[in-house]
Every structure is written in C-alpha cells, then in structure tokens.
Simulated scan of single mutants.
Amino acid sequence: MPSYLPRRHSRSEFHPVRGLRYHVRIWDPVPDRPAEGTLVLLHGWMDVSASYQFLVDAFERNWRIISPDWRGFGLTDRPGADSYWFPDYLADLDILLDTLLPDQPVDLVAHSMGGNIATLYSGVRPHRVRRLVNLEGLGMQSTRPEQAPARYARWIDEVRHGARLRDYGSRAEVAERLAQNNPRLSPAKAGFLAEHWSLPGPDGRFVLAGDPAHKIVNAQLYRVEEVLACWREVRADVMLVVANHSERWHAFLNTEEFRLRKLALRSLRTEIVDDAGHMLHHDQPEAVARLIEEFIA
C-alpha cells in the first residue's frame, strides 16, 4: 500500500481534560528558521488530527501547529457515553487552550464540525480568538420546534439499539474505502490517512478511530437563533472557505438563509476553492494553505 511521506513530522502529547486523556498532535517549527507563532487546527466529524498533514506540509510560514483529537476520536479517550453533545466540545477546547496557549488570543483553522465548534467558541469566548478560518463549517440545517417529538423519539431508539462502525480486514481496505468516498484522493494520501483513521481491533481487523456513538443523532434540535446569538458576539476576523464541488454547502451560499447567517458575523470574508470537495484540505492543500497564510498575516 503506497503511503504519503510527510515533509514535517508531528509528535504527540497527552493532557488531562475533564477526566479524559486528550491526544494533541504538534508540529514543531522547522529548526534553523525563525518561528512565526502558533496555529491551532481543529478537525471535523469522524476525522482525526493527522488529517491535516497535507495542509501542514503546504504551509510556507514556520508556525508551531497544534491539533487535538476531539473526545472519542483518534487517540483521545472515549468518555463511555452513549451520545455526544456540542457543549462538551466547547468546554474541552477552552481547557485545552488554557493549558497549551494561556493568556493569549489564538488563531484557529477548523473544518466542518470543527468549524461549527470554533465559530460558536469564538462568540462564547470572544477575547480568546484573534483570527478564525472556517473550512466548510457553516452550521447545520435550521429546525422547527414541532420537530422535537420525532427527534427525541429517534434519539431514544438509536440509544436503545446502539451504533456500530464497519470493520476492515486491512488498512489497505480502509484506504480503498477512503478513495471511494473521495475520488480526488491519491492512493498515497489514502494510504497515509488509513494509518491514522483506523486502529487494530482484538480480532486482528481494523476499525475506524472513532466512537460509534458519534453516529447517534443529537437529541436536541439545531437552534439556529441561539447559534446566531453566539456568532454576533464574535470579535475575530473570520474567513469562510468552501469548495466549488462540495456536495454539502456550495449551493447553500446563494440562499437567503446563508445571507442571514453571514450578517451575524461582524467581519466575514468568503473564499471558494476550485476542484475540491468537502475535504478541501485533502484535495487542494496548497490553495487552502495560501489562503490561510495570507489571511492570518
């Protein structure tokens, strides 16, 4: 199985966060070059911190880069819960930043679910975030209160039955599945991601490095009014980056709902990356890196 060869190698640290052993991946500045500050990268749903390797390698600036595995993903502990809640991610991020980057505003780059978390956090703790690059984390579809009975019933049913993730006979099979999900992913990149997205099970097979409970629907509806109230408190400059072939969000940019969400942010710049899907940091890491470097600078 071919595997991508990183240009910059990461190391791992583990920190106690709310009773969990949290894994944090760190890319130290390149030696013999002036260091240029710190950048924090936050991954999305069913992803891991190592997913940012291609983006890290594309940066020209010599940042120290910090990227945690969210609770229940990668090498971070699973809390033993039967479902996951957004407030937990906010509290985890707050403690991690206070541990690793105390008493200073930070620059965040966050993808998908991580982008949702980071934008909420930027409104809840506006003094802690200087710049935010949101990669396809536009929030979820708005809901109506009358949807609540069916949502609670669905959550109860899914909790009762539990959730499972498919397992694989080898990491090569994992890589093949990743390539099927994203045709733009080269075999070498798929092989690299398979090494970090999967863990060996006790039976010798491989399972994705994520708690199956993440697949259980959230019991609470996405209350867009509450989300926008948080967004209105954001004081950081925000850049939203979307992919022109994103199956999730590109069409959403032309809707009235997106216009209203955009108005909630004091300072928002929107960029579109060509020839990329939702995993745009895999598809076009160089283009995404240039946008981030110019914006953070």
Rank of each mutant, 00 (worst) to 15 (best):
Q147F: 08
S122M: 00
L120I: 06
A175Y: 10
I117E: 00
Y89G: 10
D94P: 02
R78L: 01
E158P: 02
A148C: 01
G123V: 11
D94C: 02
S112M: 04
E136M: 01
E173V: 06
P183T: 05
L96C: 05
T119F: 00
G114T: 10
N182W: 08
D92T: 03
T143Y: 11
L90T: 03
Y152P: 00
Q141M: 13
V56Y: 12
P183E: 03
E173A: 15
R177W: 07
G123L: 08
F73H: 15
H111R: 09
Q104H: 04
A172E: 15
G162P: 03
W63C: 07
I117L: 13
N181F: 10
Q180F: 12
Q141W: 12
E173I: 03
T119I: 03
R78S: 11
V109A: 12
D57P: 13
P126G: 06
V133H: 09
R61P: 05
A153Y: 00
R160I: 01
P126L: 09
S122C: 00
Y89A: 09
W155K: 10
E173N: 06
P145D: 07
V109Y: 15
S83T: 14
P79E: 14
L165F: 14
R160T: 00
D77Q: 09
R151E: 01
H111I: 03
H127C: 04
S49Y: 14
D92I: 02
G169T: 07
A150E: 13
H111T: 04
G139Q: 12
R131H: 13
V174Y: 10
A91Y: 11
L101A: 07
Y52I: 05
L96S: 07
A81E: 15
L120Q: 08
A179M: 14
D94Q: 07
I117F: 00
